[in-house]
């Protein structure tokens, strides 16, 4: 993203600038976390990449070429699973395959592959409301993986889960990311979560400006109890709160 700006209509004739000249580069196959206070424009940034919102100005580049959001596929994993409760787990994945350039004969194979990957193959014919919150979020993940996206956007996907389930899912996301060699942009409020998951953390302030990038040099697999992780957390906290009001 180069010099991306986005504003919404504000009170009276004014405009409320949400993203102000944002520059952001995500390497293919990397895991990048975006951290910032509520309302700073994180979701707006994801929505521009997903093609839900148009940016006011700026450029998107993919492999060096100037593109629009239609030229690459960004799959979304939302904060809530956003599943079709009236369709089975398998049908929920089939739903996102229907209008892609994917032959219908491949649907079953893809559904089986991704459900196996997230450990829910036995729940293929179950309806979402009969699954736990963690399982529903896994279906959301399988749905995103099934379309073979160029980029997966994850918007605080574990914030509504209990800590034990969230920890297990974080481990699983890392395994899936390593297995599939996919690119992930992960939005979170949680500094520890960001450090545990990402190669690189982007810190965003209230005015929608990415003011710092932190490379996380920790080797994988990582542990929440690792003292190094806690040291990085303290440093990132200092950087973050020196710019953003607590």
């Amino acid at each position: 993203m180069e010099n991306v700006t986005k504003s919404f209509a504000g009170e009276g004739d004014g405009r409320n600038v949400v993203l102000d000249n944002v520059n952001l580069e995500i390497e293919s196959g990397s895991f990048v976390s975006l951290m910032g206070p509520s309302g700073c424009g994180k979701s707006t940034l994801l929505n521009i990449l997903a093609g839900i919102l148009e940016m006011d100005s700026g450029t998107l580049r993919y492999d060096g070429e100037s593109v629009s959001s239609d030229d690459f596929f960004a799959a979304y994993v939302f904060q809530e699973p956003r599943l079709l409760n009236w369709r089975t787990v398998g049908e929920n994945i089939r739903f996102v395959l229907r209008d892609q350039d994917i032959p219908e004969e491949e649907y079953d194979e893809r559904i089986t592959r991704e459900l196996k990957r997230v450990g829910l193959l036995d729940e293929r014919d179950a309806y979402p409301l009969r699954l736990s919150g963690g399982m529903q979020q896994r279906v959301g993940l399988a749905r995103a993986l099934a379309v073979n996206p160029d980029l997966i956007l994850m918007d605080e996907p574990f914030s509504a889960l209990d800590e034990l389930t969230a920890r297990k899912l974080r481990r699983d996301v890392i395994t899936l990311w390593q297995e599939t060699d996919t690119t992930i942009l992960f939005v979170t409020h949680d500094i520890v979560e960001a450090i545990y998951l990402a190669d690189r953390i982007l810190l965003m302030d209230e005015s929608g400006d990415i003011f710092e990038e932190v490379d996380i040099g920790l080797s994988r697999p990582r542990s929440f109890e690792d003292p190094q992780l806690n040291d990085i957390e303290a440093d990132v906290m200092d950087d973050f709160y020196s710019r953003v009001d607590a």
């Binding site: 839900i52 979304y76 049908e91 739903f95 996102v96 229907r98 209008d99 892609q100 749905r143």
Partner: peptide, 23 residues
Amino acid sequence: ELIEMGQTFETGTVTMWRHVYLP
């Protein structure tokens, strides 16, 4: 939110009617 989900996965109008709106 479901409409937005459909948009992000580039789901067509017919599929949206059949699997989201009508149900």
